[in-house]
Design a protein around this nucleic acid. Sequence first.
DNA 1: CAGTATCCTTGCGGATACTG
DNA 2: CAGTATCCGCAAGGATACTG
Lengths: 138, 138
Amino acid sequence: MDRKSLIASSQAACDALSADDDGLKREVLSHAGNRWSLGIVYALGVSGRLRHAEIGRRMEGVTQRMLTRTLRQLERDGLILRYDYQEKAPRVEYELSEVGFGLLEQMIPLWGWVIDNANEFRQARTAFDKINPQQRVE
Amino acid sequence: MDRKSLIASSQAACDALSADDDGLKREVLSHAGNRWSLGIVYALGVSGRLRHAEIGRRMEGVTQRMLTRTLRQLERDGLILRYDYQEKAPRVEYELSEVGFGLLEQMIPLWGWVIDNANEFRQARTAFDKINPQQRVE
DNA sequence: CAGTATCCTTGCGGATACTG
DNA sequence: CAGTATCCGCAAGGATACTG
């Protein structure tokens, strides 16, 4: 995409966002930067319906607390569905919602783009850190 | 995109990410959830090179501190370029880098997707909050 | 004008221990 | 098994005041 049409389409996309939508946008997209959110979305997208413990096993390093919390946030935003079987030996399964699949679909080109530019990011980092020994960025 | 090909392409995209890349991915995408980052990227994308104060004027509600900090982070990640004219009356301009334009380009479909699903997100929220009066999610 | 410095509150992420 | 409860350190975001 050339810059003129890029700018035009970004204006169109941004003008369609009200002030309320702006907050919503950041809340939804905050999952992108979260430690576990997208990993869980990916796991559920690839494997379908999974039990709590099974997700935990696939997310290397996650603690019970963070797993539960992240699942709650995803559920709250409607990205995953929670099925509690109400059995005495607890049994809860999670599944991507339609919107959750949509998010996964949106993320794929983004991941590809990050990979394609990984070296540029790393170079920018080291160049910045060299110029700004340890001041700045706090 | 149907689910089978969605899953296949997400696996391809995710397998291409090493453990290191995974951290990088979250760092880059964390801008998506930040309060001011994408607003600044958008402003610079639409208007080209801008002075510090001019950006501040366009970002309703930003404080000096957050503006400077966010600009530093964007600069550190190579998304924007900083031009200090070294004049006695300070004069600093910022501009999107090539990578920064790339990010803006990546974000546009994402914004559109959020708008298209805004009602679903809001409904999920209120439904969740009704079921979970004030427990959960902390 | 383009920042720093200081103080504050909130939430993220994690460690550990406990429960029905 | 699927969570809570309690603790911690750190960073995000903001309010306010100051500086070359």
